[in-house]
Design a protein around this nucleic acid. Structure first.
Lengths: 147, 147
DNA sequence: AATCTAAAAGAGAACAAGTCTCAATATCGT
DNA sequence: ACGATATTGAGACTTGTTCTCTTTTAGATT
């Protein structure tokens, strides 16, 4: 497991305990599974992955856990495509990236860009709105599909 | 009807004809309905609006028309929230805006920002990806709900 | 350790958005 | 007017997500 994933896992369990939540098996499994993915996974992928566990985790629990983690600011939910959501860890250190999504093959390429973040940061101040998060999605075709 | 909506309607019909598509009633109705909305509408809202027409337009036709219009670059599809898509006209002159979406009431506040567009434009060049469009969504709470 | 209580979990039904199929209909070049 | 082909609508279906309800479990309390 990578260092950042380890950090995130510890941070997540701490935050869950902090929120007064008990340490159930299903939620623990979801946290562990998320730690194993470096970019967004869909809830159903996660569900499939966890249904195989002993004991298997139920679908409802996966969605429930993801929602709680989202609420606590531990995971980001991003609209992947055509009505499917992807979930990914939020780095407690504040680093974050966005995604370019290929319309042909669905591949997601993460990227980060300080200038973009700065522009959004300023924008957030000027708009009549209490901005808590933002998503940027580039659409088009990945290197492979473009050829 | 506003000037821009009129322009868009004419442009859309021209582009549809250009693409060799016939002028069926359902698609025409969808174009006209879109002209009547200045910000994103969901497919189901459109469906409901058009089902009341004489003759009524079928759901399948609404989705079909929206997909074709999207393909031709005439409408933009944006992920509104929790797996629902919104559709809005694309100004042929190139102007476009993004949205701040309230997590409480679902209201959408459009905004535009040249600096943001510039940052994305530069970014699009530097990433290994053929970028054809982009979405920016600010999430949080609108003025009313924040209070 | 045994007990208790609210939180957590799982199974499966329910729901909602969007897609597909297919027969009936309409458009438009000839 | 005709015929090839695009367009359409009704409704079945799929897929992602949420809800309901009962059983199980964590962890505080005796």
């Amino acid at each position: 497991m990578t260092k950042t994933a380890e950090n995130w896992t510890a941070h997540a369990f701490a935050a869950l305990a902090e929120a007064g939540l008990r340490k159930g098996g299903a939620r623990t499994a979801v946290v562990e599974a998320l730690a194993g993915h470096d970019c967004a996974v869909t809830a159903l992928d996660l569900d499939e992955e966890l249904r195989r566990r002993r004991p298997p985790v139920g679908r409802a629990s996966v969605y429930r856990a993801l929602e709680q983690l989202e609420q606590l600011g531990l995971v980001a939910r991003i609209e992947v495509c055509r009505g499917t959501a992807g979930y990914e860890r939020i780095d407690p250190a504040g680093h974050h990236h966005h995604h370019a999504i290929c319309g042909d093959c669905g591949q997601m390429v993460p990227f980060e860009d300080p200038k973009l973040e700065r522009a959004i940061g300023e924008l957030a101040k000027s708009v009549d709105f209490e901005v808590t998060s933002h998503d940027v999605v580039l659409r088009g075709r990945c290197e492979k599909c473009a050829r």
